[in-house]
Amino acid sequence: MAQIGSSARSSVKGGTFAGLGPLLMLPSWVVIGFFLVLPVILMLVYSFLTKEFRGGVIWEFSVNAYDQFFFNRGLFGDEAPTIEWTYINIFWRSIWQAGLATVLCLFIGFPTAWFIATRSGHSKSMWLFLITIPYWVNLLIRTISLKFLIRDTGPMNTWLMSWGIIDQPIHIINSNLAVQLGLFYSYLPFMVLPIYASVERYDFSLSEAAADLYSTRMETLRQIIIPVVKPGIIAGCILVFVPSLGAFLAPDLLGGSKTFMIGSLIEEQFKGNAGNWPFGAAVSMILLSLVLIALMFYARSQSSARKATRAAD
């Protein structure tokens, strides 16, 4: 009976949409092809071309860009290759900076999301709206305003000194901390919104059940709340970490020369006369590969965890 029913249903569906199916998919294929696949292929191709001075490329195959990234062959390119640490260090520093910014976003974003999700209906939407308001303003302008706020003679230091809390300006600008603050400020909503969505769905009777079973508040947070809202936390972390890794506005405007990050490195290759397009493309490809590998490892750990619980079935 059930089989007859379901096959009848699917044939109706098939009859209606059989011809339309591929057509309906078309817009998304166009978007993905045009804005995702094509640029990445273009980038891949460019990374294997020869650079032309003053920007642009010569259409000639070359692995120079990758070679330049990983190996040092001396000033004139005639020495035995040694590992080139400059760019690897920039990568490492960027990962570190983006990681700290993500942690900062998590520690501020989680309580914020929790607070919003536990408000009643009307004030909930108001808080969500307030969180997103700054993002109506261009990122460049926001980053510059942050620079104004935290510089040595800016309002933050002036007020703190006039209230007698400090007697010397806190020197933040041009430091790692300034960059992290900038990244934090740029991407906080990307942390808040997915966590908010998770907490919104969280069943608070689970917390009561935990307390009923002798959990302290900290134990409830660690053993129940965080594991249950984990999908939102991970989504938030990815959404903050990935763009932070490639960010260039915050490091350019708030950091000094010592806080150079991947984003700035890439940006430099495509800007002005000093650029090197194949090298910029190669750095982008390396960054992309790193992110994809990390996401793949994460996806695999998730699916194997799911498989483990299903195996118990």
Binding site: E208, A209, A211, D212, L213, T216, V228
Partner: peptide, 27 residues
């Protein structure tokens, strides 16, 4: 609540969704 020697069976059970049956019972 966590200091009261009283346990509750909740109306909608409130089982911990990420823990196995044994871990729920042993919580």
């Amino acid at each position: 609540p966590n200091k009261r020697p009283v346990n509750t069976v909740f109306q909608h059970y409130a089982l911990f969704p990420h823990l196995t049956v044994a871990d729920n019972v042993g919580f």
